[in-house]
């Protein structure tokens, strides 16, 4: 446990010592800010329209603003995650510090979990920026906070799962750019997999779309906490970290 914490702290420090953490936050703040502005603007316009048509103004903020925003945040996350994980192992391999980690009295799994946890915490910080926007809504309306919490839990789980995959990919190469590019490709693929259902109704179509991380996020965005999606994310996280552990082991035998 102590070792996980030590590794995690070191990784977090190096994220914040380099511009990468701030860059990610800035990118996210700008993009999410734009989405937020658009979503609220649309909400207000629609609200006026419906009022003029004689229907009552109070539309559901959760349904009209927060849900699409959470969906958007999850997609933006897909683009940021490769930038978070690409350096985790690739950089250690390139600079030779991997020799320090692998010859210190710590277990591989502690290093892996520590690194993944640091990545997750950074991702949480990035998402935290969106929370500032959403907090604003509480001043002007009464959104229901429970679905929001579920939505953020979903974002974190989805992030954790993609971060685990990214961590694995980072062990495969010494080159950060390659690690980042490959992770991005995989993230993108996992996102669009559910398109299969649009034209394929056979069983394999279902299986493939089951793997799509976005399909599993939709219920979270609606504020529905379904164990089936929870299990999907948690097992994907375990799978990703397991692959990382195998890769570390084979790294030794191959190296």
């Amino acid at each position: 446990m102590r070792n996980i914490f030590i590794i995690c702290r070191k990784e977090l420090k190096s994220y914040f010592a380099s511009p990468i953490a701030y860059l990610l936050m800035a990118i996210f703040a700008v993009i999410f800010g734009f989405f937020f502005y658009s979503a609220t603007a649309i909400f207000v316009v629609r609200g006026m329209e419906s009022q003029m048509m004689g229907r009552g103004f109070p539309m559901d903020v959760n349904e009209w603003v927060i849900r699409p925003l959470l969906m958007n945040a999850s997609v933006v996350g897909l683009f940021l995650i490769p930038m978070i994980t690409m350096r985790l192992y690739a950089e250690e391999k390139r600079s030779g510090t991997i020799e320090l980690l692998l010859t210190s009295p710590v277990r591989d799994v502690e290093v892996i979990v520590g690194k993944w946890l640091a990545a997750l915490l950074l991702y949480a910080c990035v998402l935290g920026i969106s929370a500032i926007n959403i907090a604003v809504l509480f001043f002007y309306g009464q959104p229901d906070w429970k679905p929001i919490l579920v939505g953020y839990l979903g974002l974190l789980l989805q992030g954790g799962c993609l971060l685990a995959i990214g961590t694995f990919i980072s062990t495969l190469t010494k080159n950060q750019i390659i690690a980042g590019g490959a992770t991005f490709a995989v993230c993108l693929l996992l996102w669009v997999l559910d398109w299969v259902t649009a034209y394929e109704t056979a069983a394999w179509g279902k299986v493939i779309s089951y793997l799509s991380v976005v399909t599993h996020f939709e219920p979270f965005a609606k504020g529905v906490l379904d164990t089936k999606d929870l299990i999907f994310y948690v097992s994907m996280i375990f799978f990703g970290l397991f692959l990382t552990a195998r890769s570390m082991e084979s790294l030794r035998w191959r190296a």
Partner: peptide
């Protein structure tokens, strides 16, 4: 095996803890 973004003391503290 050095981490360029760390200060020397910080680095040695990290390694010490790791060991």
């Amino acid at each position: 095996p050095l981490y360029p973004e760390m200060e020397v003391v910080e680095y040695l503290t990290f390694v010490g803890k790791l060991k």
